[in-house]
Write a protein that binds this DNA or RNA. Sequence first.
DNA 1: GTTAAGATCTGCT
DNA 2: GCAGATCTTAACG
Length: 201
Amino acid sequence: MDKLQPFEKDFYRGSTVEVARRLIGQYLCRESEQGTVYGSIVETEAYLSSNDPACHASVGRTGRNTTMFGPAGRAYVYLIYGLYYCFNVVTGPESEGEAVLVRAIEPAGGLGLMKKRRGPSCSPANLASGPGKLCHAFAIDKSLDGHELQKKPLYIAENKNATRYNRIKATPRIGISVAQDRLLRFVVPGNKYLSRREPIG
DNA sequence: GTTAAGATCTGCT
DNA sequence: GCAGATCTTAACG
């Protein structure tokens, strides 16, 4: 495999929606003592600071969401339903409280290690096709909350074949009970590693 | 101190 | 398709 070069902080500048779209097709890489896993991001969701009650930051700064109010380009990791972690990329100006949730990844390297973590009978399409699943496959937990994504052991790097993912579609976000009308989820249409299949039509 | 809800996943029917 | 698992967080008293 070619050496993967992490993006610099400039990559995370711009609006949260821009970054959410820019992340599609790029590599998420995770190094550990067990080995390295990486894959292409195929599904993201934007969470905004204004007029977005679904965003954790909408209630102001709390213990859990403090990282969201830090500088862009860091990881925001939290536990949901007492069981699963969700991995976000902090975006927007500092103190703004915006982030992009990474919901699904198409595995590209370290498939064996992902399988070891997720279970031997787990199919490739099921390894990281959802926020909780991808955190499990990538061994992402609360210890990485606040980590800067420009460096090891967790970083985002350029995928030179990202043109394959040039088509991006906006859809409603998943799993939220408010602001369901906003088209802030971005997917590679028809990709088989999404957390949900394309709605028909 | 107590309680209700949550950016989910899995297994069973 | 649906219910159950499982527990932290934050709001309230």
